[in-house]
Simulated assay, not measured.
Amino acid sequence: MKNINIKSTVLVLTLLITLISCDNNYEDETPSIASLAVSNPNFSTLEAAAVQGGVAVVLSNSNPNDPSGKYTVFAPTNAAFAKLGLVDAGSLGVLQNGFLTNTLLYHVSNGNLLANQIQGGNASTSALGVDRRFIDRNGDLYINGSKIVATNVNASNGTIHAIDKVMIATGVNIVESAQLLQTAKVFKSPELTFLVQAVVTSGLAPVLSDPNNNFTIFAPTDAAFKEAGFATIQDVANTDPIVLQQVLLNHAIVGGSFTSEQTSTTVTTAGGGTLTYSVFQNGVFTIVSNGITSPANMVIPDIQCSNGVVHLIDKILLP
Rank of each mutant, 00 (worst) to 15 (best):
L114I: 15
F218E: 02
V73Q: 08
L114E: 14
V236R: 06
T274E: 03
L13V: 10
T266V: 09
T9C: 02
N282G: 01
N152E: 11
T125M: 08
V12K: 03
L15N: 04
N307V: 14
L11H: 10
A34Q: 11
F285P: 01
L195A: 02
V166H: 01
K70G: 01
D140G: 12
A205M: 09
I148A: 15
T151Y: 02
F218K: 01
T14F: 11
A80G: 05
S109N: 12
L204D: 02
H161G: 13
Q182S: 14
V200W: 04
I163N: 00
V288Y: 03
V10R: 08
E29Q: 12
Y277E: 01
I20A: 15
N110H: 05
T265K: 11
I292K: 01
V236D: 13
T30L: 09
D23C: 13
N290Q: 12
N78Q: 09
D131R: 11
N116S: 15
N110P: 00
H161V: 08
L244I: 07
A75E: 04
G158A: 07
F230G: 02
L15S: 08
F194E: 00
T216F: 03
N116F: 11
I287W: 02
S124C: 09
D302L: 04
A50Q: 10
T259Q: 07
V279M: 07
S32R: 00
S189W: 06
G283Y: 11
K2T: 07
S62V: 10
V12F: 04
A237V: 14
S264T: 10
A79I: 14
I168R: 00
V57G: 04
K83Q: 09
D23L: 09
A198Y: 04
V309R: 03
A89Y: 09
S21H: 08
S177I: 11
F134N: 04
L86W: 10
G229L: 02
S60C: 07
L46H: 04
V186Y: 04
G158E: 07
Q119W: 07
L181A: 12
V267A: 07
A237L: 13
A169Y: 06
G139L: 10
N42L: 08
D302N: 11
N112G: 11
V267K: 04
T103D: 01
I163F: 07
G121H: 12
F225G: 00
A178Q: 00
P301Y: 04
P301V: 15
N122D: 12
G291H: 00
F225T: 01
N297S: 14
A252G: 00
N122M: 12
T193S: 15
L317T: 00
L275F: 00
G158C: 09
G256F: 12
N25C: 13
I33A: 00
A228M: 13
L128V: 02
A48P: 03
V73A: 10
T259G: 08
E261Q: 12
H251V: 00
N42R: 05
L317G: 03
N290T: 06
N3F: 13
P190E: 09
T276R: 06
Y26N: 15
I148D: 08
I313F: 01
G90S: 14
L192C: 03
D28V: 14
S278K: 03
A75H: 08
D66G: 00
G256Y: 12
G229P: 06
A162L: 06
A205Q: 11
A89R: 13
E47F: 10
L92V: 15
K226G: 02
N213C: 10
S109Y: 07
I242T: 12
Q304L: 14
I287K: 02
A184R: 05
L318Q: 02
T183V: 08
Q182H: 12
